[in-house]
Design a protein around this nucleic acid. Sequence first.
DNA 1: CGGTAATCGAGACGGTACGTCATGTCTTACA
DNA 2: TGTAAGACATGACGTACCGTCTCGATTACCG
Lengths: 211, 211, 211, 211
Amino acid sequence: MSGGDAPANGDRPIAAPRHGRARSEKAHSAILAAACELLLQRGLAAVSMDAVAARAGVSKATIYRWWPSKETLALDALCDEWDVAAPVSDTGSLQGDLIGLLLPVARLASSRPYGRVIATLVAEARTDAAFANLYDSRFADPRREQARAAFLRAIERGEIPASTKTEVALDLLYGAIYHRLLHGHAAVSEKFVSDLVEVAMNGIAPRSAGR
Amino acid sequence: MSGGDAPANGDRPIAAPRHGRARSEKAHSAILAAACELLLQRGLAAVSMDAVAARAGVSKATIYRWWPSKETLALDALCDEWDVAAPVSDTGSLQGDLIGLLLPVARLASSRPYGRVIATLVAEARTDAAFANLYDSRFADPRREQARAAFLRAIERGEIPASTKTEVALDLLYGAIYHRLLHGHAAVSEKFVSDLVEVAMNGIAPRSAGR
Amino acid sequence: MSGGDAPANGDRPIAAPRHGRARSEKAHSAILAAACELLLQRGLAAVSMDAVAARAGVSKATIYRWWPSKETLALDALCDEWDVAAPVSDTGSLQGDLIGLLLPVARLASSRPYGRVIATLVAEARTDAAFANLYDSRFADPRREQARAAFLRAIERGEIPASTKTEVALDLLYGAIYHRLLHGHAAVSEKFVSDLVEVAMNGIAPRSAGR
Amino acid sequence: MSGGDAPANGDRPIAAPRHGRARSEKAHSAILAAACELLLQRGLAAVSMDAVAARAGVSKATIYRWWPSKETLALDALCDEWDVAAPVSDTGSLQGDLIGLLLPVARLASSRPYGRVIATLVAEARTDAAFANLYDSRFADPRREQARAAFLRAIERGEIPASTKTEVALDLLYGAIYHRLLHGHAAVSEKFVSDLVEVAMNGIAPRSAGR
DNA sequence: CGGTAATCGAGACGGTACGTCATGTCTTACA
DNA sequence: TGTAAGACATGACGTACCGTCTCGATTACCG
């Protein structure tokens, strides 16, 4: 989330503008807060810019000045909450690293109805290529990158072969999480995460595992 | 698609209408065709009921007469194309069954920009519970059920233990497919399907594989 | 006012549309009434389409369907009131005809604050050529044409020479009325009309008139 | 233009400011020039304060510091151009004086699209009483006063009777000019001015003229 | 000659209205 | 009764100005 520089998203400018009235920090955070609440309560489709402006006590023009669309705003509001997640440390084993990465996601995802919001953002990304880039770089890629790094460490440790199909494995792990999150057919519980990692690590029908 | 009975979706009524003008078969198929084309070309969000009506040479009232929302219409149009897939036979092995189930899906998904449409429908389902039921019963569940049946056969055959976490495995397999389809970060190629099934069956770090 | 045929202004269509819902007569007149009241109370600049829609109990879209701009609507509302003026008969003398034409205008103009409205419409006509045509054909020209006809009758009667500069005379008569109406420096009273016609007929310094 | 004392219009202050930065003469004239150009090119309605500020290379606050509204600014810009007209001398005859007064106005009015600007200012004056006073005192009254003085001289000379309805005559003369200027139905040519004065002086149907 | 104060550029802000668009309902006349 | 045509209320859209308000930087008079 940090480090933006242009009004392409809602990030604060780094270099101080020499002249002109300073950007209102109050308005900025009020907008994000209003967007977040409305988003989680009623979903992106039911949230209008007028409603966000009214609830934040802000004019529509101010929102449009900093966010080009309500999807961008929603992404910002979402990241505001999800990016507080603690950085995951190296646990020494791939399985431990994966659990350490996926469990916080599962806990966060279950805490409030984020599935609806993320589903809408994903749908929007399929329609708007520019937004897709933004979504990937701000939301999806960072998490996937952390998991990819865990796989690299496991290969360096010799825990898994260098020929491991890392990308497929990543799709398999995150895909399952997203699947439950977006389709809503089952909860993204902590039990699910541990089962998921176990099955993914050992396979559906483990050759050695007795039974 | 068959078997509907009420105008809750676009299915034809079973009992013959008692009197009055008969339902126009031409209008029905023209609407579905128009919806399908517009949907794949520009996405659900960019397709209005007016546009469908105009392209189908039909009045808006006729569409609303048979479909309660444009999401329902889109689902009907989608199923029209996806339900032609051949029923998969029993190959004798779980891996063969899974390939047989997932490959046609991958081929279909790659043939046209269905990812965008499905993403929108999934997002809508998260907002509208009634539509979620419809989506599951018409689109998602049938496929998942076929795969679940394959797992049951494998258990009966003794190919995998009865304690196999089938639901987790299903999420893992379909989740990966949906992940690429909805997020669009990589193609749902035939190679991906075979890799996916292999990794899912044997695990990321197969015990027997070299270390 | 009558006889329009296109939605270029708010007139009713002549030929009945064969299909479709009939235009709401209630909405039509409610819009004109609301526009007229707001117009006279607060002037065109202070009247928004939203306000007209709200007061008429009508949606903005309905207004825009029949009137392309609020100026067009204002012109329609104005003509609705001014076109009820009785057609002027031939009095047998130019002076009588002119009085007969100008007095009703003066009475109408003084009855309510039309000056403000007409001033705004005139200003708009100077900016928008299309509106200028509409304004002329619906409001200005008909009155001027009646006066021009009176001059022609006077020439035919031999009351004034054929060389009379009719157009200059018309500008002189109507110009004076408009001048007071638009600039508001003095009232358009009945006395003013009779003085105006007298001075215009005989000249500022009548050669024969004793005093 | 001179003689102002307060920032009610754009005039320069008389008394020297005690201290502080002096008013920028460059900004002042740049604003007037920018306003004038935009005004004549596109009309007052299409000219925004932002546009004037941008074109003048000036901040909006600076404009509002000296002009309370864009109408006031436009009036200032207009007077800047119209007040350069030479003061008219006493020609010895009423007709000569009137020609001497009206001809420069006609020439100026025809030189550029002032009609549009004046029409807008007149309309604004009908809505805003304070602006009406400003418009009259800065633009309309001075000219009318000169003509009124010519009538007084003519009465003193015995050229016209003391009972002459001067105000009606003034409305008749200036009304005709304004009529063509604001309604745009015919040009304010030099020929028109001479015809106008002749008809106004002698009447539409001069008693002495042939019949 | 340093302090005080009005001015200027830049531009963010709350607000209001704009004109357009899509949804879902309703009405009318035809088939 | 089903349908094409289309008018309608509703409400959000994204834009454009308005007039106000901070900012920091620039002058100039004045003590």
